[in-house]
Simulated assay, not measured.
Amino acid sequence: MHTNESFDRDTWVRLNADYPGFHNFVLLDWVANGDRAAGRAHVTGVSQGQVQHFEVATFITVRDQLIIDMTEVWTGVEETAPEGTRPY
């Protein structure tokens, strides 16, 4: 799903700081070339008293030192691949 949301810097920081259940964000890897960057992170959150783990891929485009486009792809760590998609 693509939300087409747009945030200024302060609103983006506040949204993430106040997000319900947000616990921790660890940037594990990143690469950049010119105006494009990609990162891989591990995020934890708490929902109904249970810690949840997520892996996140983020793709960013920058112009004039501002993020003009960002796409994030989230998956839960506990999710499993569909039957028959793993060779083992």
Rank of each mutant, 00 (worst) to 15 (best):
P20S: 00
N4H: 08
Q52M: 14
D35L: 13
R63M: 12
A38H: 00
T3W: 00
R14M: 03
W30G: 14
F7H: 11
D8E: 01
Q50R: 14
G45P: 07
V73E: 09
V56H: 14
V46Q: 11
G39T: 06
R36F: 15
E72D: 15
F54E: 07
W74P: 03
D8W: 02
V26L: 08
Q52N: 12
R63S: 14
E55M: 09
R40F: 06
A81I: 04
I60M: 13
A57D: 02
D10Q: 05
A57K: 06
G21D: 03
F59Q: 09
Q48K: 08
Y88V: 07
L66P: 04
V46D: 11
L27R: 12
Q48H: 10
R86I: 13
G76R: 15
V26D: 15
V77S: 02
T44G: 00
D10V: 01
V56N: 11
V46R: 03
T71R: 14
H42T: 09
I60P: 02
L15I: 01
N24L: 10
V43Y: 07
T85R: 04
V73F: 09
N16H: 03
W30C: 11
T11M: 06
I67G: 00
G39N: 10
L66Q: 13
V13Y: 10
N33G: 12
T11K: 15
G45D: 08
T61Q: 04
A57N: 10
F25C: 09
M1H: 06
G21L: 03
R36M: 15
A38L: 02
L15D: 09
G45M: 07
D18E: 05
Q52I: 11
M1K: 04
A32T: 07
L27N: 05
A81P: 01
Q65W: 10
V46W: 08
V31H: 09
A37S: 05
F22A: 08
A41Y: 10
R14T: 07
L28Y: 00
L27S: 11
W74Y: 08
A32I: 03
F7C: 04
N33L: 08
W74S: 05
H23M: 13
L15Q: 07
G76P: 10
A32V: 04
V13F: 11
T85Y: 01
T75G: 12
E5F: 02
T61C: 01
A32Y: 02
T61V: 15
V73T: 03
V62S: 10
M70D: 09
G49D: 05
V13R: 07
V31K: 15
V31D: 09
R86G: 07
A38P: 00
A32Q: 05
E55R: 13
G45Y: 08
